[in-house]
Design a binder for these strands. Structure first.
Length: 591
RNA sequence: GCUGAAAUAGCUCAGUCGGUAGAGCACUUCACUCGUAAUGAAGGGGUCGUGGGUUCGAGUCCCAUUUUCAGCUCCA
């Protein structure tokens, strides 16, 4: 584990390496103008305007070569304090640096010199460029200046730097291992899902083995919800445009919806979310305060026209299934219901052994009048309410401005995948907005009609995305209850009729016990079939020969292990049933 | 959508200077009957993503296009 001091040292080194890269780029592209070059979680990057030039894989190699040269020269790095007017003069003609200097306070401006290169920087830096020699440029891309799609595209080059070549090597190895954990690779290798151009991009299809996992997840969460008083519904994947105009989604998100279909003078869209459908289910009848909370749940198919560059296997597609629910509550019930949702989230994370997550309270940006529903009082009430509940529950969270939904603040639980950026797995959103738009009511104690509050929540998020995460976390070695194939039976010989009969008897027995079991009696060597079963990541591999048949026992081997264990048939069934029913994340070994 | 890269058999990939398509695995058949990660042999399988162009000749060079990948932006 890297401690804080070490991390600071590493950050300084990476920051200096960013300057070395900038210097090298300046040598190769004299017209280069630099924006910012910060240290990030995995190294550093620098954004640069190369005018007409762009960065390609070849130019990366050239830049690396030039950087080696800069490091070898080993120029001292000097820090200099300068005044704002000096800075303006030094960087005259560089609109990017001037833009940065504009926001800096006079008397608080420093530049760093190394040989023929000077950069505006607050530092700190290592004292010589030769310390930066253990680096690698890992990727590059075009980025919008200040992240705004209306601005000019700059070139961003990412790199990493370490004190020793060994640490650099180790880091590169880790990156490669992460690629092996990518759910898209696992999904292909294990035949879980597929995509096809003719079906359409962003539209993955679950194969039998993948759908088995999917169904287990569906059953799992629905059972949890049922016990907590949720009622499940099924609603259509299409709705009228008017439905989404009523909810407000049309104004906010129509660019990201599949376009409207006009039929018989009516306009329909594939639904991007289920809130409006569930609102109408609530509105279907009169409700008393005594009926609340009402919890409407659905494993719901949704369609969003995500930008092509954002599609990623089953983690983010244009069709997905939300583990969605809308809780209709009185204002007094908010705290209790949010707390139950939070409990459910962490209960589920415990079942799946998910420990590496981050809670975010996503708030509106009051300055963004376009995105957010305009009602200051509503926002203040909702944000304060949600913040208070989280604090009372002693949940550790950070607050992020401008991350709220257009209708209300939310608690997001974020995780990081093997490859790529953090995403939200679970969410709980507090909404004072949609119930009013749909004029939802309940009759309170005093006989007055009042507007309920709605909690939007998704625990597994989308089943597709959750599955992607679990595949990456487990590297495809799923717990028994989720494994597409739980037991593989390998008779030692396949021409011994009595042995085959015994293998078939065991297969039927396990099948009747509700297990997913396969018998592999092909005329291949045992070691061949065993190897295949291991590659398929089948948790339990049974090897049955005449020893087992004579004793009426079972010999099994766990995926990825060498050890063979022999037990009675009953003991084996009991062991597996226990493991499946209790959804254990790892097999229990006898003492 | 934006910047860059890539696309060759079901999968993983090779294919040099432009000279007419390769391997391993998988699949089919035959032989082998085997006690814990690959038995041997033979065979089938490709309009080299798609469409144009250059050339005597294109998997290879050029243009367009589709899809995939990395990053950016976005994620109700």
């Amino acid at each position: 584990m890297v401690n804080f001091k070490e991390e600071e040292r590493l950050n300084t080194l990476n920051h200096s390496c960013a300057h070395v890269m900038a210097q090298a780029i300046k040598h190769l592209y004299p017209q280069a103008k630099f924006w910012v070059g910060p240290v990030v979680a995995e190294g550093f990057y620098y954004d640069v305007d190369l005018g007409e030039d762009v960065i390609t894989d070849e130019s990366i190699a050239a830049i690396e070569k030039e950087m080696k040269k800069v490091c070898k020269e080993g120029k001292k790095i000097y820090r200099r304090e300068i005044s704002k007017s000096e800075a303006m003069e030094l960087f005259a003609g560089d609109e990017y640096k001037l833009d940065l200097i504009e926001d800096l306070e006079d008397g608080n401006i420093t530049v760093y010199d190394q040989g023929d290169y000077t950069d505006l920087c607050r530092g700190p830096h290592v004292d010589n460029t030769k310390l930066c020699k253990n680096f690698k440029l890992v990727k590059h891309s075009g980025v919008y200046w200040k992240g705004d799609a209306n601005n000019k595209v700059l070139q961003r080059v990412y790199g990493v730097c370490f004190p020793t070549p060994e640490e650099l090597e180790e880091h590169i190895k880790l990156l490669e291992e992460a690629k092996e954990r990518d759910h898209r690779k696992i999904g292909k290798d294990m035949q879980l899902f597929m995509v096809d151009d003719l079906i359409g991009r962003g539209l993955p299809m679950f194969l039998p083995r993948g759908y088995t996992i999917w169904q287990e997840l569906e059953n799992y969460i629905k059972e949890k919800e049922r016990k907590l008083g949720y009622q499940h519904v099924m609603t259509p994947c299409v709705g009228t445009v008017n439905l989404y105009k009523t909810s407000g989604h049309w104004d906010h998100y129509k660019e990201n919806m599949f376009p409207a279909m006009e039929m018989e003078g009516e306009s329909f869209v594939l639904r991007p979310m289920n809130c409006p459908h569930h609102m109408m289910i609530y509105a279907n009848k009169m409700h008393s305060y005594k009926d609340l909370p009402i919890r409407i749940g659905e494993i719901a198919h949704d369609f969003r026209f995500e930008a092509s560059g954002t599609l990623k296997g089953i983690e983010r597609g244009r069709h997905f299934c939300q583990n969605d629910a809308h809780l209709f509550v009185t204002p007094e019930q908010i705290a209790d219901e949010v707390s139950k949702v939070v409990d459910l989230i962490f209960d589920v994370y415990k079942d799946f052994n998910i420990t590496d997550y981050r809670c975010v309270l996503s708030l509106r940006d009051p300055a963004d009048t376009k995105k957010y529903h305009q009602d200051d009082e509503m926002w203040n009430t909702a944000e304060d309410a949600l913040r208070k509940v989280l604090k009372d529950l002693h949940i550790e969270f950070t607050e992020e401005i401008g991350e709220a939904a257009f209708y209300g603040p939310k608690l997001d639980v974020n995780v990081k995948p093997a490859v790529g950026n953090e995403y939200t797995l679970s969410t709980c959103q507090l909404d004072f907005c949609l119930p009013a738009k749909f004029e939802l009511t309940y009759v309170d104690k005093d006989g007055e009609k009042k507007t309920p509050v709605v909690l939007h929540r998704a625990i597994l998020g989308s089943l597709d995305r959750f599955m992607a995460y679990i595949l990456e976390e487990t590297k495809g070695n799923l717990p028994l209850w989720l494994a597409p194939s739980q037991v593989k039976i390998l008779p030692v010989k396949n021409e011994d009729e009595e042995l085959l009969a015994y293998a078939e008897e065991i297969r039927e027995l396990l099948d009747r016990a509700g297990m997913r079991v396969e018998l592999d009696a092909r005329s291949e060597k045992l070691s061949y079939r065993l190897r295949e079963a291991q590659i398929q990541k089948v948790p339990y591999i049974l090897v049955l020969g005449n020893n087992e048949r004579n004793d009426r026992t079972i010999s099994y081997r766990l995926h990825g292990q060498q050890k063979t264990t022999t037990v009675s048939i009953d003991a084996f069934v009991e062991k597996l049933t226990n493991e499946i029913d209790n959804k254990l994340v790892a097999p229990v070994e006898e003492a």
